[in-house]
Simulated assay, not measured.
Amino acid sequence: MIQEQLTPERLEKTIIFDLNDSEYGLPVNFVESIETALPITRVPHDQNYIKGVINLRGKIIPVIDLRIRLGEVREHRNEEDQIIITRIGETQVGLIIDSANDVLDIPENLLETPPETIGTVKKEYIHSIVHFDDRLIVLLDIYKLLNLEEIKTQGMDDH
């Protein structure tokens, strides 16, 4: 059986997750794992979105509450929350989300520039918007979202 290919297009493999009743995505190549119900140890810091650190298989990783980072005012944490472990270079950071629910291959031609306002989400953290199979997915800019220099100044990065 020969598979018919209409046009070659670049596909962006993306982890899709829920956060406050909206769908967001991060490129799979920045995601190491998705963890459930890890205890977070609070540490002193200046940024309210940094919730503390987790011990993941012997490695201490800072954790960001993505709800607060994206500008949501309400904070809630429950046992069903998951933590996406991301990596940029040698730095790992955990992101608290409601739940990861999908991995999609998103055609590059579906990526749209975000409008000036997207609800309460800060536009600077948005890479693009995708309308995919009747779903509206906000793709996040991992570099701006994590702001590694800011996290490092909090004394929470061991590199």
Rank of each mutant, 00 (worst) to 15 (best):
G155V: 03
L148V: 07
T153F: 10
L140M: 05
D134K: 07
I142S: 09
I126K: 11
F132V: 12
V138F: 00
Q154W: 07
S128G: 14
L139A: 02
V130E: 02
V138I: 13
V130F: 06
D134T: 06
Y143S: 12
H131F: 15
R135N: 04
S128W: 14
Y125C: 01
N147Y: 00
K144E: 08
V130N: 05
V130K: 05
L145G: 09
L136V: 13
L146S: 08
D134L: 11
D133F: 15
G155H: 05
N147I: 00
R135Y: 08
E124Y: 10
Y143I: 13
L140H: 03
L145Y: 04
V138T: 12
K144D: 10
I142Q: 10
H127D: 14
R135K: 13
N147V: 02
D141Y: 01
I137C: 00
E124A: 12
L145S: 08
R135A: 01
L145Q: 03
D141H: 09
Y125Q: 02
G155A: 10
L146W: 04
T153K: 11
I129H: 13
F132G: 06
I129Q: 10
F132P: 11
E124K: 14
D141T: 09
E124F: 09
I137G: 01
I151D: 03
I126L: 13
K144V: 07
N147S: 08
K152A: 02
I142T: 14
H131L: 15
G155T: 04
S128L: 14
H127L: 15
H127I: 11
I129G: 11
K152H: 04
L146T: 10
M156F: 02
D134I: 07
T153M: 12
N147D: 12
G155L: 10
L140C: 02
I126D: 10
D141K: 11
H127K: 15
E149C: 02
Y125G: 06
D141M: 03
T153L: 11
L140D: 01
K144P: 06
L146Y: 04
D157Q: 12
I151N: 01
H131K: 15
L148F: 07
L145F: 07
L146C: 03
E149A: 01
D133C: 14
G155W: 09
K152P: 03
G155R: 06
Y143P: 00
D141R: 07
T153Q: 08
D157V: 06
H127C: 10
V138G: 01
E124N: 12
I142F: 11
D141N: 12
D133H: 15
I137A: 04
K144C: 07
D134N: 11
G155Y: 09
E150T: 00
G155E: 03
K144S: 11
M156H: 01
I151V: 10
H131N: 15
I137H: 01
L139S: 00
E150V: 02
L140W: 04
I126Q: 08
Y143T: 13
Y125N: 09
H127A: 13
L136D: 02
E150L: 09
I151F: 03
F132N: 09
I151K: 03
L136Y: 12
D133G: 13
N147Q: 07
D133L: 15
S128P: 14
L146A: 06
E149M: 04
Y143F: 14
G155F: 14
D133W: 13
K144W: 05
L136F: 12
L148E: 05
F132C: 10
F132T: 11
Q154G: 08
K152W: 06
L145A: 01
L140G: 02
T153G: 00
Q154Y: 09
V130T: 14
